[in-house]
Amino acid sequence: MIDKAWTHLTGLWGRWWLAPLAPALYALAMIPAGQLRPEHILIGGLVLSLGLFNRTTQRITAALYPAVLVAIASDAIRFVVPIFVTPERVHACDLRALELRLFAVAPDKTPGDWLQQHTAPFWDVFFAIPYAAFLYVVPVYALYLFVKDRERMGLFLWAFAIAHVIGFAMWLIVPAAPPWYVRLNGCAVDVRAAANAAGLLRVDELFGMSYFQQFYARAANAFGAVPSMHVAFPLIALFAAMGRATWRTWPLHIFYATAMFIGSVYLDHHWIVDGIAGAFVAFAAVLIAARLLGLPWPWPPRAPAENAPPPRGP
């Protein structure tokens, strides 16, 4: 029985046989640590079952594996945060001062300050949608590319993983308080502070739910404002599509990225400088991923089909 299982495992994954087991092993490691949560079981079970079901599901699992690594790393970072995120190292009011120096809309008023005075239920819901959807957009978009453009899917997902490596390193090297923290607590830094849903709490209240409150209560680090990974997510997709996106899909990429950028400030989760840093991280991640994968980027224009009619004159 064990020999048969081993043969099946190595037949599907070869020398990477540990890959489908890793998320389940991580979930098991969380039991003695007292940190086991439903998402650990869900991810571990999905990767294990799909990775070992058949060749087709193995290929899909392998293609999506960069996102699996990000999920594990996003959770595991909580174990190293206390080492790096200490009160004397956290940037708080100096970030607000930088925001005022660069983007003040009035004396001692940042764009975020102004937006917090002009909130409305419509805009709360409008900007909450990309914030709520990003966890689902990434795998759904990756599966779409798996069918339509396998090379671009690889670039997108590996850039997604590389962006997180850069982002996590910056969170630890330059821990930064988000605007909601400064608004609630001023310049005093308490590293024990829990993450806060900020403007998204208005959406919870509007619909009589606690979705965003519970989601952010699970965050591993309240002081990871720089760079904004929320802003980086849609920009990774946008940059990875350069040369491949069409006039139909470009507006979707641009709209999603713009809504996320503005929403990150409107919902009081990020300073504008966080979003700019996120954009640079996204660009660097796509560039690095393209080099590592040996892919041309930006993508060269597609060659016209052999039987396509000649282009019309002006």
Results as ranks from 00 to 15, higher is better:
Ile83Pro: 02
Ile2Asp: 07
Leu201Lys: 04
Trp180Pro: 15
Leu42Asp: 08
Asp75Pro: 01
Ile31Lys: 09
Met30Tyr: 11
Trp180Asp: 15
Ala169Cys: 14
Gly313His: 15
Arg59Ser: 07
Ser228Gly: 08
Gly199Tyr: 08
Trp250Asn: 05
Asp94Val: 13
Pro298Trp: 12
Leu50Thr: 03
Val226Asn: 15
Gln35Trp: 03
Ala285His: 02
Ile31Asn: 09
Leu9Cys: 07
Pro300Asp: 08
Arg89His: 12
Pro82Arg: 14
Val265Ser: 02
Pro251Ala: 10
Gly51Cys: 08
Asp124Pro: 02
Ile2Thr: 04
Phe79Ser: 12
Gly186Leu: 07
Ala176Tyr: 02
Pro20Ser: 11
Glu306Asn: 11
Ala225Leu: 14
Arg96His: 10
Leu295Tyr: 02
Leu12Asn: 09
Leu48Lys: 09
Gln58Trp: 07
Arg312Thr: 08
Ser74Lys: 00
Pro175Glu: 10
Gln116Gly: 05
Phe53Ala: 02
Ala305Met: 13
Asp3Met: 06
His270Asn: 08
Phe233Ile: 15
Leu238Phe: 06
Pro234Glu: 00
Pro179Cys: 05
Arg312Glu: 12
Pro314Lys: 02
Gly154Ala: 11
Thr57Val: 13
Asp204Ile: 14
Leu184Ile: 13
Lys148Gly: 04
Thr110Phe: 15
Trp123Arg: 11
Glu88Ser: 14
Pro234Phe: 03
Leu293Cys: 02
Pro296Gly: 11
Ala76Lys: 00
Pro234Cys: 02
Ala284Ser: 06
Ile41Thr: 12
Arg291Cys: 04
Val273Tyr: 01
Gly11Val: 10
Phe127Arg: 03
Ser74Asn: 08
Ala232Cys: 03
Pro107Asp: 06
Ile288Leu: 00
His40Asp: 12
Arg78Phe: 09
Asp190Pro: 10
Arg218Met: 07
Pro309Val: 03
Ala92Leu: 07
Ala76Asn: 10
Val203Asp: 14
Ala71Trp: 11
Phe280Arg: 00
Val203Glu: 15
Leu145Val: 01
Ala97His: 14
Phe215Arg: 13
Trp250Ala: 06
Glu39Gly: 12
Ala67Glu: 13
Phe168His: 04
Leu135Gly: 11
Leu69Trp: 14
Ala177Asp: 15
Pro309Thr: 06
Phe223Gln: 12
His164Asn: 05
Asp268His: 06
Pro23Asp: 15
Trp297Gln: 07
Met229Trp: 05
Leu50Lys: 06
Val191Ser: 02
Arg218Pro: 05
His269Ile: 00
Leu267Asn: 04
Gly208Ala: 03
Pro82Ile: 13
Phe239Pro: 00
Tyr26Ile: 03
Leu98Val: 13
Thr56Met: 02
Ala195Asn: 09
Arg96Ile: 10
Asp94Leu: 13
Glu39Gln: 08
Thr246Pro: 03
Ala176Val: 07
